[in-house]
Each structure stands twice: as C-alpha cells, then as structure tokens.
Design a protein around this nucleic acid. Structure first.
Lengths: 217, 217
DNA sequence: CGGCTTTTTGATGTATATCAAGAGCCGTGG
DNA sequence: CCACGGCTCTTGATATACATCAAAAAGCCG
C-alpha cells in the first residue's frame, strides 16, 4: 500500500550522524519505515529492543479508523506478548535498528510484571493526556513526551529530530493532521518552539509548553 | 463535599428486589454512594469483589478535571494493587455490597497476570471507544457495555436499572453531562431505547445501537 | 410543602473536522 | 542539471458538533 522508502534515506531518518562502527551485536537488524514488527492477534513471544528510530503500536478499528496507542523509543523494549496475544500491531515509523530475542515461555518470568505496568501506565497517561483537553494542550503534551525520549541533536541546544509524522500524531491524539499542524504552528507563533526544518524541533520555552499541556492553553 | 446518601434509598439504588435472606458470607459489607474504597497512591493489597451495585475508578487531574477510567460491576473483582500502588481511586457509585480480602503479598501469585490483562484491555477499549467518535457513538458504546454487565430487571424484557449518573458517564466518555443527556434523548427519539424512568433503560433495538456505536451514527 | 440534587431543555459561541488547494521536499529518470 | 511525480506539510474557507451558560422540570427527603 505505501512505499517502504517513503521517509527519506536511512541516516536522514534515524539521525544525522552515521552508524557507530561497531558496538551493536550482530543480532540487531535495520527495518524500513512502515515495516510491521508483529501483527495484532498474532501470538508470539518476542522481545524487541529499539536501538534507534521510533516504533508505533497501532490498533485498527472496524470503521477503518486507526488508533496509535503508543510510540516506542530508543532504549525501550517491546514485549509483544505482554497481553497474551498482542492486541496491537507494531510498525516501524522511521528506519529503525532493532535487537530481537525470543522471550522465555514462562509468562511469569518472561514478561515481567513491570512490563505490564509500564504499558498500563502508558495507556492511563494517554487517556488523561487526551481526554477533555484542547488540541493545543494535547500537542504540547505530546511533544514534551517526545522530548523525554529522544536524544538531543549534536550541537544545538534542546533541538531534536522530529521523527513522528503529523499523521501519526493525529491518530495518536485523536485529532486531524491539519489540526496537529496548526497546533505546532501556534506553538511556534507563541515562540514556545522553533522548527528549523519540518522534521526538526527546538524547544525555546519548556515551562510555557508545560503550562499549555496542563491547563487548556 | 457530597452527601453520601444522595442517590436514593439502598434498595432503590442497588436493585428493585430486597436482599437475599442469606447466601453472602459475613465478610461482605454495604457501602453508601460515594464512599471511597481505596485512594489513589495509597499502597494496599486488597481484593474487592462486587456483589451488588457499581463502583467507579477515578483519576483526579491537576486542573481539577476528573477522569472515570472504568466501572466495575457485580461479579467483578478489583485488585487494588494491580499496578503496584494504585494509580486510581475506587468509589462506590451506588449503594454497594462488597466482599473484601487481603490478597497474598506475592505480587506474582496475589495479583494474577489475568488481572493486569483485564484492566489493560479495559483501558484499550476505552481509548478506542472514545477516540475520534461522535458523542452519540460514545454513548451508544457505553450503554451497550452497561447492558453486558447488569442483570436484567425482573419481568421486563431487556430492561435495566440505570445505575450510573449522567455526570459519571460524562467524565468517563469525555463529554459534558448535558451532551450525555441529549445523546440519550436522541437514542430515545430514534426508538433505539426507552426510559420508563430516568434511572431505567429498556433496549428496543440493540442492533441499531450497535451500528451507532461502531460507525459515527 | 420547600429545599436539594439530578436531569432535561434551550440559546449561543467556539473549537475543530472537513474540504480544497498550494507549497516544500525528496528521489528518480531523462 | 532540471523537470517530474509522489509525499508530507501548510494554509485557507466553511460547516458543525459540542461545550458552556442559564433556567426550568422532575425526583427525592425531610
């Protein structure tokens, strides 16, 4: 359906700098954007550690609607079976470098309780981050989370690669892509952020963004 | 803040019929509306089985907003510590009859994985049931769930006590109470439901409600 | 009856979806 | 190199669903 290579070259997508020469064990692999890591409903016992890039957990709705439940970032480990058979599909957002291993069969040991807790907390946060909040508030909330999870870009202070397309943000926050765009522009207008390029974001006033995220901006 | 006895007499709230003469072990207790079962952030290891009535899980937001995460119904068992220290507060909605016991200390055995899964699934359903759906769709979705969990009233076919106040529904679905009300009225106008009294609901056309819940009716 | 809470109904404003078109960006191929 | 096609993103115009404010109606209890 979609072109696998849609989102630019690999280095462009994952990060400005080229790959470290060595350091990753040979078991890691690189996946192109939109590659499916595992499908909703498909029982597996994978553990996927994300080394670079971003992954989304999506759930497809009856009416063709798409809900992005969560994003996973470098350092995160996805337990595909943390809910028995997975109730979501995991897809690469950008080019990703991923290390995978089969987790042990024992549900108790293999999928630690902490994994459940983590996902659950994530969902609670999402519900609270979205419900009854204005579009601007949701967007502010989201980019702050993004900031927590991405490494800052080389020289520039508080500048990050904007890995997630507006489209995915929209399906995550329950907004239209246009509204996401307008929200980002509004934050820029208020000098809370800068966007040197469409895929780069610089945080100018985090406290302000936080205020917008918490109240109804 | 609120009057504990706000929601009518006990029998009126829990069900039309009076209590069974015997059958419940002596450990069960009756709680009035709005009584807190446990507080958000308070570490405990309780298992609460709901015998009659309804309980809500609420999370209080910084800005005074209230999110009703879920409702628990007769037959449900709440594991207060299913997320370590509970991240939500449990409150009686109506008069409730509840049986409680300390769950074993071992997190692995005491709180079965299934409990986590259950809550998680609940949250995923909520996200999907609410996100990007019209008010009417959400309301239809909600009353169908309610129908799944309540015993049908004695004689009348497909007629149920409407235990949850509009207010709580609103905070559950991310709507205003007025909109919930109007939604219910709209369903009544379309002859999908009847409401003999404000606290009674009769399902006339479940298929129609389902359609409204799924699409954006 | 008179006070209290919940629910219903009405009128109004506004935030956001939707539709539509244009702009920027990237890769490809002549 | 430049032109082209396909994306993603941005911007504008319009319609509408919902929140909000306000007040009346319906229950409930003393």
């Amino acid at each position: 359906m979609q072109n696998d290579l849609a989102v630019g070259g690999m280095n462009a997508a994952i990060g400005r700098s080229s790959w470290p020469r060595l350091g990753y064990p040979s078991t890691s692999e690189v996946l192109p954007p939109n590659r499916v890591l595992f499908w909703q409903g498909e029982p597996q016992n994978k553990e996927l550690e994300i080394l670079e890039g971003a992954v989304r957990a999506v759930r497809l709705c009856s009416a063709g609607e798409r809900q992005v439940l969560a994003f996973f970032w470098p350092g995160d480990t996805i337990h595909s079976s943390c809910m028995g058979t997975p109730t979501y599909t995991a897809e690469a957002v950008t080019y990703c470098r991923i290390r995978s291993r089969q987790s042990s069969q024992s549900t108790d040991r293999g999928v630690p309780v902490s994994a459940h807790e983590q996902v659950l907390r994530e969902m609670l946060d999402l519900i609270q981050g979205v419900s009854r909040r204005s579009a601007l508030s949701r967007i502010a909330w989201f980019i702050l989370r993004m900031r927590n999870h991405l490494p800052c870009m080389d020289a520039d202070p508080d500048t990050y690669k904007f890995l997630i397309p507006r489209n995915d943000i929209a399906d995550h926050l329950g907004l239209s892509p246009e509204t996401v765009c307008r929200g980002l522009m509004e934050l820029k207008r208020r000098q809370a952020i800068e966007m040197p390029t469409r895929r780069t974001i610089r945080f100018r006033n985090v406290a302000q963004i936080l205020r917008i995220a918490k109240r109804q901006g």
